[in-house]
């Protein structure tokens, strides 16, 4: 990646696509209280996305604001990791995605809060508190599903197995970035390991490790997500909302 612009864009896209996926749960959650909780997390991610994309637009200096970046780029121009664009699946898959993403975003934003770039540091300081709550929420459900019923254990293990390969991309080295993701791996392992153990879940072996999100080579899912997200905005070029 190339310095703070790509880095900021990548983080902003992670948050935006995560928010879009989480918001798909609204009106569909397993319990009404959980509907509210998932929406809170979606709102946190959306808030972080707006700050990051606005800043990315400024770094780029081409006059693009948060909406231009969110609505007028094609999938090949998005820089989010593949994990966030994966379909929600069942509640277990969504919790696996939430838990792993938070276990990455928490040390990331914490490190960012101390970085030299003031804007990124301020965003990191705000977002790390939110990530701490997301991690807590994800861990809470991973434990309940892992150590709940036979069915929930089976579903949670399947979800971990399905999502795990996509976690490797989160830590691809980028020494030039304000925070090198490779340095976050041990914090991730430290928070994920004990929760999986307590949840009576097996941590999958690391073999297949798909990548491509940070360079714009995505899964087939992203362009459908964007088609839906962007359809109205693109149908009215230049309109204000």
């Amino acid at each position: 990646m190339n310095g703070p612009l790509d880095f900021t864009l990548g983080l902003g896209d992670d948050a935006l696509i995560a928010a879009q996926r989480l918001a798909e749960w609204t009106t569909r959650a397993p319990e009404m209280e959980e509907d509210i909780a998932l929406t809170n997390i979606a709102l946190d991610q959306l808030g972080a996305a707006r700050l990051l994309l606005s800043y990315a637009g400024e770094l780029e200096g081409a006059g693009r604001d948060e909406d231009a970046l969110a609505y007028l780029r094609d999938d090949r121009q998005f820089r989010n990791v593949l994990l966030v664009e994966l379909p929600n699946g069942d509640f277990a898959v969504t919790m696996a995605k939430l838990f792993f993403l938070a276990a990455y975003q928490l040390p990331l934003y914490t490190a960012l809060a101390g970085c030299a770039d003031e804007r990124l540091a301020a965003i990191g300081a705000k977002a790390r508190k939110e990530s701490a709550y997301h991690l807590d929420h994800g861990a809470l459900w991973v434990k309940r599903l892992g150590d709940g019923t036979e069915e929930s254990h089976r579903r949670m293990q399947a979800a971990v197995d399905q999502v795990w390969p996509y976690t490797h991309e989160l830590f691809a080295a980028d020494p030039a970035a304000p925070v090198d993701p490779a340095t976050l791996r041990s914090a991730f392992d430290d928070s994920v390991g004990p929760v999986l153990a307590e949840a009576t879940l097996t941590r999958p072996e690391s073999r297949w490790a798909p990548v491509g999100g940070r360079t714009g080579v995505h899964t087939e899912h992203l362009s459908y997500l964007l088609a839906e997200m962007q359809v109205l905005h693109r149908a009215h070029p230049g309109a204000k909302w």
Binding site: E33, I36, L140
Partner: peptide, 20 residues
């Protein structure tokens, strides 16, 4: 009031529901 299967979830549900 609210519903939750256990205390830990009740506390978090309370945070999400009553302190938005």
């Amino acid at each position: 009031s609210l519903h939750a299967p256990d205390a830990e979830l009740a506390l978090r549900n309370a945070r999400d529901l009553y302190t938005r």
